[in-house]
Simulated assay, not measured.
Amino acid sequence: MSERFSGKVAIVTGAASGIGKATALRFAKEGAKVVLFDKTDGVHEVAGQINQAGGQAYAMTGDAGDEGDVEALVKEALSRFGGLNVFFANAGITGGVRGGYFDATPEHWAEVLRVNLIGPFLAVKHSATAIEGSGGGAIVCTASVAGLRSGAGPAQYSASKAGVINLVQTAAQQLAGTGVRVNAVLPGLTETGMTKPMYDGARAAGKSHMIGQLNPMLRGGEPEEIAAAVLFLASEDASYVNGQALAVDGGLSSSHPTSRPPGDPNRPSS
């Protein structure tokens, strides 16, 4: 595997599991020094895994929606590794309510927006100058296909992710000329800690074959598939990609809801 990030420093939030963990491991495998950040102590295990494999990683616990914690995170990356080239603002929550209107309170919404939207804002605010000072680089934020339209998450989560899509657009404009690109990755259904109850329920009911059946790939995604897209957006391979929202969803967002037969009857058979 190439080392696209040799000599680079990357921060990953929400790095203890799922997409964050997969991305941190991939950054390290491609040569980056990685600062891992999460609210849970599991982040130290991931850092240990990287270090034991010969990489360089440091773990911190904290709150991705707290300005003091995010500011300290960036300062730690600078002091420990001497620079910052990539910030992957990945930490997020659903809010714990399914509908988001009649079963939710303003407090539910405020907490989701604090972590999912203010968190990426803080990432941009505190990392952009550091990245510019290190010669340029990229900020990648985790949004979601739920931010594109209804049907992929509860209302408070969907609204927060729609905000992230707009955030990367406005940030890209405000950072014009700095050498800092800002993009979003939009996962579709992916097996992570956030989606574990749904996956577990489907398996327990003998319906695991139905997971992801609404997208043309007819399956759910893996965290490593999202990580691959994040590394593309963070790398020089995406040097002219800025202010964009890249859906990695098996094609789910390419269509409006419809009933679809198992195959196209007009498609020639092989």
Rank of each mutant, 00 (worst) to 15 (best):
R149H: 08
G18M: 11
M217L: 11
P261C: 00
G179E: 04
K207F: 06
L148T: 04
G243V: 05
M198T: 13
V74T: 04
W109L: 14
G95D: 07
F27A: 14
S2W: 00
A227Y: 06
T23N: 01
H108D: 15
I11H: 08
A138I: 03
P187D: 10
G62L: 02
N166M: 09
I93C: 08
K75N: 15
V43C: 06
V35P: 05
S253F: 03
E224G: 05
F37H: 00
E222S: 07
Y240G: 00
A104W: 01
L252H: 13
V180F: 12
L73F: 12
P261V: 12
S160Y: 01
H44W: 00
A47W: 03
V97F: 00
S17P: 00
L186M: 03
L113N: 04
F232A: 11
A152G: 01
G65A: 08
L36H: 11
E71Q: 14
A59I: 10
G147P: 13
A53S: 15
A202F: 13
Y101I: 14
S255T: 13
D249R: 12
D63N: 15
V112F: 09
L117S: 04
M210Y: 01
L117F: 15
G48E: 14
I226L: 10
P120V: 08
S235K: 11
G119N: 07
